[in-house]
Each structure stands twice: as structure tokens, then as C-alpha cells.
Amino acid sequence: MNTINSQFVMSLSIILLGYFLKKVNILKESDGEVISRLIFNVTLPSIVINVFSTMTIDKSLLLVPVISFVFGLIMAAVALIVFKGESRREKGMLTMLVPSFNVGLFAYPIVESIWGRSGLKYFGMFDMGNSFIVFAVCYIIASIYSSSKGEVSYKNIFAKTMHSIPFLTYIITLAINLLGLSIPKPIIQITGILSKANMPLALLALGLYLSFSFKKTYLKNMAKIIALRYIIGFGVGILIYNLVPLDPMFKKTMLIGLILPISFTVIPYSVEFDYDTRFVGTVNNLTIIISFILMWAIIAFV
């Protein structure tokens, strides 16, 4: 078994371990929320500090968050058109599921195991652009269509963005890097130790969140969301991979990044705005399975 396949088998084994532990009631799905908070507030920022503090910024890296952000805006606009015939609340719920990506919890552990720091810096920049989509665009859509008045609290949007530890870590460490400053060595050493826990914790959390049951009434809208995300995402990814004359890691980031699962952040949004949380969770789970298979195939054969 080659290195890539062995890494995916190992990742799948940890995901299935998490699912098994949930099924035998050793762990609960609610434990996944605790692990996720630990990842997003401790281990993921630790990775960002280690990677961003020493990386060399070039034009290909700066282009990654721009593409990620613009693609998210376009996908949101396309979704609003596709779901224009749905009721107001249904339109809001379905549209918020289309533009965002799960980078930190899903992509980071696999990318780290295969490409190490060189891969993480590209996916970190991808997630920077994606963060604006997750915390601004998706939240605005969810908020506007949740009520008949179409009101949105920009104060809440700002608060959510400023309370995102990974997002703030991206911005601060990138600024430190561009200014030519350095992070104290003790911080680098501590975050280096903490970052090693990210991969197993993230994969275990994915297993705890997995669920394979859903209502048949979900099928139509689930199919539309999946078709939008993967047909457009994969198509644009292939075009960038073949037409943009930049380094291979940039191309792989675009090809893989645009077919990642839906961000987990939409689940708390669905709770906050009283959408169908079970539907949101079901679609999220399905995209995890599809993206895992596609990512495995792309990395193995491209």
C-alpha cells in the first residue's frame, strides 16, 4: 500500500473509530462539540501560528484567499437563483449550505499527513478567504431569510467574525509575517506541541458527527445542493488546475478546496435561526462522505 492510500486508510480508521465509540455509547455526539471547540480554539490556531509565522509569501499564496472568497460569493448568487421558487425560509436555509467549506476540521488533518507544512500554508490561505464567506455571507443569508422583514444584524456578524479564534489567528500571524516581525520562540514551541493533536482530534470529531439516517423528503433539495457544490466546484477546480500557470501545490489546493464539505458552522446557524437542523446536519454528513472519497481519488491519481 503506497503512502497516500495508507494515510487515507489511517484517517478513515480514526473517523470510523469515532463513529463506533458513539454507537456503543462510550462517547456521544455532544462530545464532538467539545472536541470541535478544542480544535477551533486551541489546536487549529496552533497550526496556523506555526505555519504562517515562517512561510514565505508569494503571488500564488495571495491569490488563494481571493479565489476562495470570490468563488463563495458566486456560489451564493447561483444558489439564490436556483432556489428562487422555494418559500422564503426554505430559500435561506438551502442557500446558506452552498457557498462555504469545511477546511479546519476536514481538510487540515489529511493535508498535514500528506503534504505537511507546504500543504497547510496553502489550505490556510484558502480558509482565510472562506472565513469571510462562513462568518459574513452565510450568516447574512441565514439571517435575512429567517424572518419576513429581511432584517440582518451587522453587529452580530462583526461579533461572530471577531470571536473566531482561527480567523483572528490567520489575520494576526499573516500581518506579523508581512511586517517582517517574528513570534517569540517559546510560543512557537508550545503551539508546535499542541498542533500535533489536531489531526487525531479532528478525525475523531468527524466520526462522532457522522449519521446515515435521513428522511426521503430531503432527497430533492439534497440532490440540488450536492449537484451545485460538486459539479461547479469540480469544474472550476479542473479549469484552474489546467489553465493557471502556477506551482503544483496551488493547483492541488484549488482542485481539492472547491470540493470540500459544507462548513460545520451552518449547523449552529440553523439552530439560531430555527431552520431544519436535521436536514442541515444530514446534508453536511453526506458532503463529508462524498468529499472524502473525491479527495482520496484526486490525491491518488492527479
Rank of each mutant, 00 (worst) to 15 (best):
M1P: 07
N2Q: 09
T3L: 15
T3C: 15
I4G: 09
N5P: 11
F8P: 08
V9A: 13
V9E: 14
M10P: 15
S11N: 15
S11K: 08
L16P: 04
Y19D: 13
F20Q: 07
L21P: 06
L27S: 08
K28Q: 14
S30M: 10
D31E: 11
D31H: 15
V34F: 15
I35R: 05
R37P: 11
S46I: 07
V48G: 09
F52G: 04
F52K: 05
F52L: 11
I57P: 07
I57D: 08
K59W: 12
K59E: 11
L61C: 06
L62T: 10
L63R: 00
V64E: 02
P65Q: 07
I67G: 02
F69V: 07
F69M: 12
A77R: 08
L80A: 05
L80I: 05
F83L: 05
F83T: 03
F83E: 00
K84G: 07
G85M: 08
R88V: 01
E90N: 15
E90S: 10
G92R: 02
M93P: 05
M96F: 06
P99V: 00
F101L: 09
N102Y: 08
A107S: 11
Y108V: 10
W115K: 13
S118G: 13
Y122Q: 07
S131W: 04
I133H: 03
F135M: 07
C138S: 12
C138K: 03
Y139N: 03
Y139E: 02
A142C: 03
Y145P: 01
K149D: 12
G150V: 01
V152A: 12
N156F: 09
A159C: 14
K160H: 14
I165V: 14
I165K: 07
P166Y: 05
Y170L: 09
A175K: 13
A175N: 13
I176M: 10
P184C: 08
Q189I: 13
Q189P: 14
I190S: 14
T191V: 11
K196N: 13
A197G: 08
N198D: 12
N198L: 14
M199S: 15
P200A: 03
P200C: 02
L201H: 04
L204P: 00
A205F: 11
A205Q: 13
L206K: 04
G207R: 03
F214C: 10
L219D: 10
I225L: 00
A227V: 10
L228T: 01
Y230P: 01
I231N: 04
I231P: 04
I231S: 11
G233D: 02
I238N: 02
L239S: 05
N242P: 04
L243H: 00
P245M: 07
D247L: 03
P248G: 03
F250H: 00
K251V: 02
K251G: 00
K251C: 01
K251I: 00
T253N: 06
T253W: 00
M254S: 01
M254D: 01
I256N: 01
I256V: 15
I262W: 01
F264V: 15
E272W: 08
E272L: 12
E272A: 13
D276E: 11
R278N: 15
F279L: 09
G281F: 13
T282Y: 08
N284Y: 13
N285P: 10
N285T: 12
L286D: 07
L286H: 09
I288G: 06
I288D: 06
I288P: 05
I289F: 03
S291M: 09
F292Q: 06
I299N: 09
